[in-house]
């Protein structure tokens, strides 16, 4: 076995910022985010691709960062839960999770927010079934999912409203 703990510099575009970070060459994207960049929002759950707690958005697609070698993310756009809010305030999803009581222990929440944000970016008017399918890879052991689906639906409605041009009104 290769006994090599050498670190190398990896260049990552995370939440819009170009970051350089030294990591052991066999780090996953999740380890680079959490232990290299101190972005601890993305969670280390099962750490083998089952639970979805580590979900980040890689080039627009929800991706499991715990089984993505960090080098595979070089040259891609990474969005983590830390990148969803703007200077104006929380992302509508985060606001609706708060209003709907969609988070309990909160461990699965960052991953679910990333899966849901990627869905609503593509399709703010996603149906209940499309929401369920999009969150099919995120396990939550507290809520029973109902309030999560409610929150995503409500956030989608808000995003669809802001996206629709006002001139359509009569």
């Amino acid at each position: 076995m290769l006994m090599d703990n050498r670190q190398e510099i990896v260049r990552l575009r995370v939440n819009g910022d170009l970051r350089e970070v030294g990591v052991p060459v066999h780090y996953t994207l999740l380890e680079a985010l959490r232990y290299g960049l101190r972005l601890t929002g993305s969670k280390q759950g099962c750490d083998k691709g089952d639970c979805g707690a580590c979900t980040v958005i890689l080039d627009g697609r929800p991706t499991l960062s715990c089984i993505t070698p960090v080098w595979e993310a070089e040259g891609s756009d990474v969005v983590t839960v830390e990148g969803l809010a703007t200077a104006e305030g929380p992302h509508p999803l985060q606001d609706e999770f708060d209003r709907n009581g969609a988070a309990q222990c909160g461990f699965c929440t960052p991953g679910i927010l990333c899966s849901a944000a990627a869905l609503l970016e593509r399709n703010p008017s996603a149906s209940r079934q499309e929401i369920q399918e999009a969150l099919g890879g995120n396990l939550c052991r507290c809520t029973g999912y109902t309030k999560i689906y409610d929150a995503v639906e409500a956030a989608g409605a808000r995003l669809a409203e802001t996206a629709a041009p006002e001139t359509e009104g009569r």
């Binding site: 076995m1 290769l2 006994m3 090599d4 703990n5 052991p24 060459v25 066999h26 780090y27 996953t28 280390q44 750490d47 083998k48 070698p69 080098w71 595979e72």
Partner: peptide, 12 residues
């Protein structure tokens, strides 16, 4: 936490 064994990553 499940760590990967050390390896080098090549992107041909």
């Amino acid at each position: 936490m499940l760590r990967l064994p050390p390896f080098r990553y090549h992107r041909p």
